[in-house]
Design a protein around this nucleic acid. Structure first.
Lengths: 213, 213
DNA sequence: GCGAAGTCAAACAGTCCTGTTCGAGTTGTT
DNA sequence: AACAACTCGAACAGGACTGTTTGACTTCGC
């Protein structure tokens, strides 16, 4: 596939992907013109390598997610579940610092199914860990698994936003994330307050598919 | 100001605002045409009442936030800080169920400063409560206040997303939110894990104004 | 019932974006 | 050196949206 392509062409594809990543990181709605200018290339050249904007965005998303996967794949997931969670969180944080807004772009540009695919692997990783931690009794069981996974997602993204808004020290962010998630995941000591049902009924991953449209 | 306006005119303004709220709730980028159709009115009529799309979005945002404020303003904020937090969370959840996506629309349509203004009041309310709870020793002090406020924001919005994606039972959502936030806010029993710095240095609300553009 | 206020469809101008074509220039490869 | 691969600017067609105008129509208020 990449057999007979001139050297500068492949180099330019790389330049485009990098510029696109940078642009989409700032503004998910960055235009082809902007990306081309950022890459120091002509707009037409982009279309020479990517048939459409969607294709470029997908390539960027795949690239970022790929790097993410690579970094997270060979992570020690054994031993104490909490320690494993901490490692996973720190690694995720490091990666997501870069991926954040690119995903935002993909979110509103790609088809929902395609997007769900991209998010599936990281989510599954967290899910497996959550379930193990539960069996071992170190994570709480009174909240849905899907919710705990969502909390990780929300907290990490939220921290990224706070850092971007200059309301949180980038160096402290990783620890803040770890502390927060650990606090949520820890089994509740006892009911701290009356008026809260003992066990919230949950829907797990029902997927009863009311869907849109 | 609203003196001499025909009855159907004021009624239509109301219809427009309601339709716009509904539309923006589904899609933040809803067009004037879509909103007009949803309101059962002509597109031109919208421009008769709102000079521009931005003006309409701002009106909708103001309306939603206003209702939010009204509901939260006369809330019992005395007594145990945790109980007060629970009340605040439940009330916020009830309101935000409706406000969610409207704010998303406003977020990318309105000027950042204007948006910050709209978010300021609710955030300040949470912040005051957090600080009181800290003084009373029922909330943790090892994380920045601004972060705890952000956590509330993230968790509530995250729950709304999960509900929208049909991964969380709407009836259980309020409890889930309460449990999650309480877990984060509770003072850490002791360092549960080595490798975490004793106290994360924080930036509070520095606002060193790097700004965009 | 009369006039003013309000509504509306159609059509228009203006902007911005995507994606394509063309011809000329440039640069890698052999 | 020479050919092919590549790049590029300009220009075009097409679409979507915003915001305005016009002139006819409906409805409210008195």
């Amino acid at each position: 596939m990449t057999e007979s392509r001139r050297a500068d062409a492949t180099r330019n594809v790389e330049r485009i992907l990098e510029a696109a990543t940078a642009c989409l990181l700032v503004t998910p709605s960055a235009t082809m013109t902007e990306i081309a200018r950022a890459a120091g290339l002509g707009r037409v050249t982009l279309y020479g390598h990517f048939a459409s904007r969607a294709e470029l965005v997908e390539a960027v998303a795949g690239r970022v997610l790929g790097a993410n996967e690579a970094a997270l794949a060979d992570l020690d997931q054994t031993g104490d579940a909490r320690a494993a969670l901490v490692r996973l969180l720190r690694a995720t944080w490091r990666q997501l610092d870069a991926a954040r807004a690119v995903l935002a772009a993909a979110t509103q540009e790609l088809s929902p199914e395609r997007l769900w695919d991209l998010h599936k692997e990281p989510a599954a990783r967290v899910e497996r860990l959550v379930e193990r931690g539960r069996r071992e009794g170190v994570f709480r069981s009174d909240l849905p698994v899907s919710w705990l996974v969502a909390v990780v997602h929300q907290v990490v993204h939220g921290a990224a936003e706070e850092v971007a808004a200059d309301r949180l020290d980038p160096d402290a962010a990783a620890d803040v994330v770890v502390r927060t998630v650990l606090a949520v995941f820890a089994p509740p000591a006892e009911d701290p307050l009356p008026g809260i049902p003992e066990q919230a009924e949950m829907r797990g991953g029902a997927r009863s598919a009311p869907g849109r449209e």
